[in-house]
């Protein structure tokens, strides 16, 4: 009986330790592993332009997406950075956010260079009505990691 109690206590303690570990586990700030989708920016633009936002979001939100395209602009702040890709349609914005720990690498990115990144898709947002001030379609990604290094100056 005493042995069973000891085993039960050990199981409970182990369960509590696992629960504590899972609760305290930090958010992964860089995406790794295999991509669910791989797109060039042209392909992504085409999908974003033709699919409804509902369809696009149901398929892509929360998924790992590898993006290949040309860096058009960057915004680097201490809390993190955003790279904007060159798009054929100026009303489509593709924005990829990076954790601040990658700021040094991102400083080295030359605008116009080709980038390959792996990110989590946050979804597409299209203008809700013709009077919207936010008249652009935005496809956003975050927790991105850089896959190539040919962008370096």
């Amino acid at each position: 009986m005493k042995r069973i109690l000891k085993i039960l206590l050990a199981i409970i303690l182990l369960g509590m330790a696992v629960a504590y570990y899972l609760y305290q586990k930090p958010t992964e700030l860089l995406t790794s592993g295999n991509a669910d989708f791989t797109y060039t920016i042209e392909e992504l633009e085409a999908i974003g332009a033709t699919e409804s936002d509902t369809t696009f979001n149901q398929t892509h939100v929360g998924k790992k997406v590898e993006l290949i395209g040309e860096a058009r602009a960057k915004n680097i702040q201490s809390s993190g950075a955003t790279i904007f890709f060159e798009t054929e349609n100026e009303n489509i914005i593709v924005a990829a956010a990076f954790d601040g720990s990658l700021n040094n690498d991102l400083q080295e990115i030359e605008l116009g260079s080709n980038l390959e990144i792996l990110c989590i898709c946050n979804g597409i947002a299209k203008p809700e009505d013709p009077d919207d001030l936010l008249s652009e379609t935005t496809i956003s990604f975050n927790r991105c990691s850089i896959l190539n290094d040919s962008y370096k100056k």
Binding site: Y23, Q24, K25, P26, T27, L29, V61, G62, A97, I120, C121, N122, G123, A125, T138, S140, N142, R143
Partner: peptide, 9 residues
């Protein structure tokens, strides 16, 4: 974008 919120945990 709601998924862009980053939490510590």
């Amino acid at each position: 974008p709601i998924n862009s919120f980053i939490f510590e945990k």
